[in-house]
């Protein structure tokens, strides 16, 4: 199992290559969409790069559970309900959802995903493997 520093270094490299950003912009706190300007297709690119870098397979919805966000049982008026939050926490134990919980608008989830969350995701995947 690689150390946290090794994971961060590889995640950073993947983001630099996929998004064309400078290494020093990729800090743990940087948000992918807000700070690093990632668009939806970039997430697929990032996923492929992480798969290669860590020799893991990432299925659709694993990093970003779109199915929950489009399920009317969990979303009402563009906001995720309490059940949906519980489900998201279960599916995304690697992400810090506290900011999202205070204002759970569906479109804010992607915007709040940070580099640290990506590192957390890789750690979670490696621990499961």
């Amino acid at each position: 199992m690689p150390t946290k520093e090794e994971i961060f270094a590889k995640v950073q490299e993947a983001l630099v290559d996929a998004l064309g950003v400078e290494e020093d912009e990729v800090t743990p706190e940087a948000t992918l969409q807000g700070d690093l300007d990632a668009e939806s297709i970039d997430f697929l690119d990032i996923v492929f790069r992480l798969e290669k870098a860590f020799n893991i397979k990432i299925e659709r919805g694993e990093l970003f559970p779109e199915d929950i966000l489009t399920d009317t049982a969990y979303v009402a008026d563009g906001k995720v309900n309490a059940e949906g939050i519980a489900k998201l926490k279960e599916r995304m134990p690697f992400a810090n959802l506290s900011a999202f919980e205070s204002d759970p608008q569906v479109q804010k989830l992607g915007k709040q995903l940070t580099v640290q969350d990506m590192c957390g995701f890789v750690e979670y995947k490696l621990a499961k493997a």
Binding site: I41, L44, D45, V47, F48, E51, K52, R60
Partner: peptide
Amino acid sequence: IGRALDAGAQ
């Protein structure tokens, strides 16, 4: 073709 998922391919 490198990697393909349902959303796209590289």
